[in-house]
Design a protein around this nucleic acid. Structure first.
Lengths: 333, 333
DNA sequence: CCCACTATTGCACGGCCTTGCAAACTTCTT
DNA sequence: AAGAAGTTTGCAAGGCCGTGCAATAGTGGG
């Protein structure tokens, strides 16, 4: 494809009048080399436009510096924010992110991990979907680190980062009760991923503890449009809900828009809404959505810290807190 | 770091009872190898969990398969949508995307290109910022392909993809005039990138042609919050504008929210608004923003097609159309 | 049965870099 | 001034794979 050959260490060595190993050492932190020699090398390198070939370096060191991000729906606010945080922090740690888009088709996640192995990625971070157990084993066996974010499952070996859902449901129910709501609903998508289902189940259970039933509706993928459809379904029920917990902010925003513009409801007067994620749009003044904030930076920090740490340790599970963010989509007491 | 060594072609060869070259050939499309041999190799490879080492392959072939995406603000809807499209199409073309986040600090773009060179990326696609001319030359000299998206500048060598702004300004002015608006405004950020400035200049010129002056205001970074501030500034002017063209959808949405909630204005009755990009949120029913649609898929397709094409060709410039999307934020005639 | 040809295979080299090891230099002691 | 101790440096091996080239096996024809 490319005819021009990249300039090699050999050429730099010749130009600087040193051996090829000297060039290598000049670019290796902590190598034994005289300051003067390094200067000469750097000068020649700069003049020639030389850059260490990380492919070859990775080959030798058995450490490519590449970290593979496996993700779908990356156009979504939450996902893109997470990718942003991860790439940023990986770079600060001297790594570089490689992205594998797994939109449509689930076995794509496996393909993604294979890609990671092929490029000898130092680690893979899975934000979407769930890899097959055998693939996970393969990664681990190859000494690849693996981080699973919000994919609560019981795999061994990798680091799992999940949100602490213990108080989530409780907080929402309490908030709704204080607001005087009695007809609760849960708006879910049909994705059925563990983290989403946990929210539903937890909410229903917490409500029941207070002696309240929850109307659960599920529809489509997890997004704005589904929120609208869910509103249409829930708001036309005989017993119209006066409070709804949406599985995701995006769903909540669609729900609010439909409730307001199609059913002329006022929020929070006629209907209280709570979402989850705290995407930037939740704070927009048209919505002012009460929600739970995904601790994006902490998630990224934890992932990066773990994969940079020396001791691999055994299968770890980390639970982070998603603080409740009070805004105006729920009536206050 | 990782102790476990990845399984090598050597081991597969032993297990399959063939030579190492046979293994290599088994994984090389179009190589001369007997079907039966290939089968044996594949079987052994599967059993051992072997995957070709793309680092080494890239070393030999002088073609890594990596394409570097240089981008900032990737949490933004437009950017993330573009990244999504690019990663998707790159994968379809058998490439893989590597992401360099250039948030904060402009010389980061140069660092990014250096990273690309180090990993011997087959190409780099710059979505944000503008690399230094010398770096561009370096890439070209190294046979790296370079695509600049919406960074209209006069560099030689790379492919430049820009939007065709010729009718943009004209369309907006016409739309505003038909809606009966006479006091036009342009809400810009202080980013001052060429593509944004082109919109401003074009709009002012087109309005003047119709004998109308445009009140231009600039503030902050290109985002939602700036839109709110811009509204505060423009809506408190003695001659309150009755139509505003916002440099970006995100700015437009912030503008709308401030106009409605802080100034109790109705859109489009009291104020007509037009944005640019057609991000998903523009279609949300709270906004229903008239805007121009970035041809994201086409941009990605053009970029990928060019960097896969055989003949490098000289410096090319491509202009794509951003169709006008009529929604309800502008009064209709 | 031998020859001409084609389909496969193995050898060995090359691509680019890192690093252990031993040689070459310095610098400092005593 | 010679030896000890510490720095630097070059050599060469090694990591993993692709591929030209020559050798081998296999096929069909005469």
């Amino acid at each position: 494809m490319s005819d021009k050959i990249f300039v090699s260490a050999e050429e730099v060595a010749r130009k600087a009048g040193v051996s090829r190993s000297a060039v290598s050492r000049a670019f290796t932190a902590g190598a034994s080399i005289a300051p003067e020699t390094r200067r000469k090398v750097m000068e020649a390198a700069e003049a020639l436009g030389y850059h260490v070939n990380h492919l070859a370096r990775g080959l030798m060191r058995n450490e490519s510096g590449i970290v593979c991000l496996v993700v779908s729906d990356m156009g979504t606010p939450y996902r893109s924010a997470l990718i942003k945080a991860l790439t940023q922090q990986l770079q600060n740690a001297g790594k570089i992110a490689m992205i594998v888009n797994t939109d449509r088709s689930d076995e794509r996640v496996d393909m993604a991990l294979r890609q990671a192995i092929r490029y000898r990625a130092d680690a893979s971070i899975v934000l979407s979907g769930m890899p097959d157990k055998s693939l996970v084993d393969l990664c681990v066996r190859n000494g690849q680190r693996l981080v699973l974010i919000n994919r609560d499952d019981e795999h061994q070996g990798p680091l799992r980062i999940n949100l602490d859902d213990d108080d989530t449901a409780q907080s929402v129910v309490t908030a709704f009760l204080r607001a005087g709501c009695r007809r609760l609903a849960f708006a879910n998508s049909e994705a059925g991923t563990p983290s989403l289902m946990t929210r539903e189940v937890g909410f229903v259970a917490a409500a029941r503890e207070q002696g309240l039933d929850v109307t659960v509706e599920r529809f489509g993928p997890t997004g704005y449009e589904s929120g609208k459809v869910l509103a249409q379904r829930l708001m036309t029920r005989r017993e119209r809900p006066d409070a709804v917990f949406c599985v995701t902010d995006l769903v909540a925003l669609g729900f609010m828009d439909a409730a307001r513009h199609q059913f002329s409801l006022s929020i929070p007067e006629d209907l209280c809404v709570v979402g989850f994620d705290d995407i930037p749009q939740a704070a927009w003044s048209s919505y002012d959505l009460t929600t739970f904030a995904q601790p994006i930076e902490e998630i990224a920090a934890a992932a990066v810290a773990w994969l940079m740490s020396e001791d691999v340790g055994q299968s770890q599970s980390l639970r982070l807190n998603a603080p409740f963010v009070w805004r105006r989509s729920v009536r206050s007491a």
